[in-house]
Amino acid sequence: MTAQAQATTIIDVGKLVGSVEHYRNEGYRLVQIGCTKVGDTYEINYSFDKDYHFENIRIVVSADTEVPSISGMYWNSFIYENEMHDLFGIQVRGMNIDFKGTLFRTSVKYPFSQPPVTVTKGDKP
């Protein structure tokens, strides 16, 4: 089993649009945008692929930072950006299709930014 090379570059929020534009011009396709909560900050990974060459850029933001949308370069990014907003509560500026929090309607608002619920093992069924 060969491990794939997975370069991850950490950049500032301000440089996001420029970097994404670079990938777009190089002919990469957007693989995914994923968010991870680490402590009080959120890591947002933008993954790109071209001919099986996989690259990541990562921005680290706090909960109240507004992230610019990349839907100008990648039209399909709206689905990930809406997901990010609905599950993590990250504000994304300028999405081409803004569901305004209705893509995933959850019983808990911004569930992934909530602390984990206590483990309820062995409770009575």
Binding site: T120, K121, G122, K124, P125
Partner: peptide, 11 residues
């Protein structure tokens, strides 16, 4: 078995 059950069906 109680600890390993992923859906906590065993008491």
């Amino acid at each position: 078995c109680v600890k390993k059950c992923p859906s906590q069906a065993i008491i």
